[in-house]
Design a protein around this nucleic acid. Structure first.
Length: 356
DNA sequence: CTCCGGCAAG
DNA sequence: CTTGCAGGAG
């Protein structure tokens, strides 16, 4: 359904195709929505709030990281600006190492039957037609030279978040036509121009700003190329963990980690892939899920797992009211048939409590 | 936890 | 009409 007509289609489609944040056909099935999203918290009666996965350690760590990023960006785009003040609590806290001890995932052992589950999902995916499949972006013939291709991948990733694929595609195409898909030209271009070209991708104002900054950073520090390490990518404004891993995977063919979006996050939790045995504890955000998955999932699967689960999440394992009835791995799924209406959401359901 | 800015679903 | 979405940043 997604036709690419750019001069070099596969290049840009490559990045886009791997991300699907769009509202999907899920809507066909979901009747009424409840207040909260399912995976946010486990019912967990009895021990309330004691551990929802997000530890203060994690939060402080995240804040430090963000500050560092802000600092670096500042140095590039406003070299003469006064130094930023560090957040007050930044050194109050010695970051110790969270993952193993305080978190739910401490075994690193593969969950039972994960291979069968993957296999089953693959089967469903081959018969289902998920939006994520609709472009054969996987092999990126890439008529663009490598450097330009990588930059295009980066830009595509940035634009495509929170945006329908055809909208992203349109934006990329417009950038291409205006010769604005390279670091130097973007750097020279007017921010307003970029903004109007990428409209109406989600958050186009912020993205236009970020694009300008990224272009400048790429120009001054990477000779117009994109950073080739995860950390450097993360230091770019608007590029977080999800996009950084995506760009490493498809831009550099260098798999540093799993690209975890909400689909992967949700499904991993439902399958019990990121919880410790004998506990109901789950990961509470995509980053934790990524770390948890990486503990046991064989590295060959790191790259394919994203498109696999994204498509599965679009067609079967939908955010609300997953279609457990047609899911051929439901027998392995601890959450199967249990999320008719999210139990943790306040029961504001009005007659929608019919199980699938 | 909220905002960002569109947009489609209810 | 209202609401949820999805990643990053504050």
């Amino acid at each position: 359904m997604f036709q690419i007509r750019v001069s070099n289609p596969s290049t840009v489609a490559f990045a886009i195709g791997r991300i699907q944040f769009n509202r999907m056909p899920k809507t066909r099935f979901s009747a009424i929505q409840s207040k909260t999203e399912i995976p946010t918290s486990e019912p967990n009666p009895g021990s309330e709030g004691s551990n929802d996965g997000s530890t203060p350690e994690l939060r402080v760590f995240a804040r430090r990281k963000r500050f560092k990023k802000t600092e670096e960006v500042q140095k590039i785009v406003q070299p003469h600006a006064p130094k930023l003040a560090a957040p007050p609590d930044i050194e109050e806290f010695a970051y110790t190492k969270v993952s193993a001890s305080t978190n739910s995932i401490d075994t690193g052992k593969p969950p039972a039957n994960w291979e069968k589950v993957l296999e089953g999902i693959r089967k469903m995916r081959s018969s289902e037609d998920a939006p994520v499949d609709s472009m054969g972006c996987e092999k990126a013939g890439s008529a663009l030279p490598p450097k330009e291709r990588r930059f295009a991948v980066l830009v595509s990733s940035l634009l495509s978040s929170q945006t329908k694929d055809h909208v992203t595609h349109g934006a990329i195409q417009r950038l291409l036509q205006n010769n604005l898909l390279a670091a130097d030209s973007i750097d020279k271009a007017d921010e307003a121009t970029i903004k109007s070209l990428i409209y109406p991708v989600g958050f186009y104002t912020r993205k236009a700003t970020n694009l300008k900054k990224i272009a400048k950073i790429c120009l001054t520090m990477y000779d117009g190329d994109i950073p080739s390490s995860l950390d450097e990518l993360l230091s770019l404004p608007g590029i977080g963990p999800k996009m950084a891993h995506l760009v490493m995977n498809v831009g550099w063919n260098n798999v540093q980690g799993i690209c975890v979006d909400t689909h992967v996050h949700r499904i991993s939790n439902r399958l019990g892939w990121v919880s410790r045995e004998g506990r109901k504890q789950k990961t509470s955000n995509p980053e934790e899920t990524r770390e948890a998955l990486q503990l046991w999932l064989p590295k060959e699967e790191w790259d394919p797992i994203n498109p696999l689960l994204v498509g599965f999440g679009q067609t079967v394992c939908t955010p609300l009211r997953p279609h457990c009835g047609v899911c051929n791995v439901s027998k392995f799924c601890p959450s199967a048939f249990k999320e008719a209406s999210s139990p943790s959401s306040k029961s504001k359901k009005s007659g929608l409590s019919k199980k699938l």
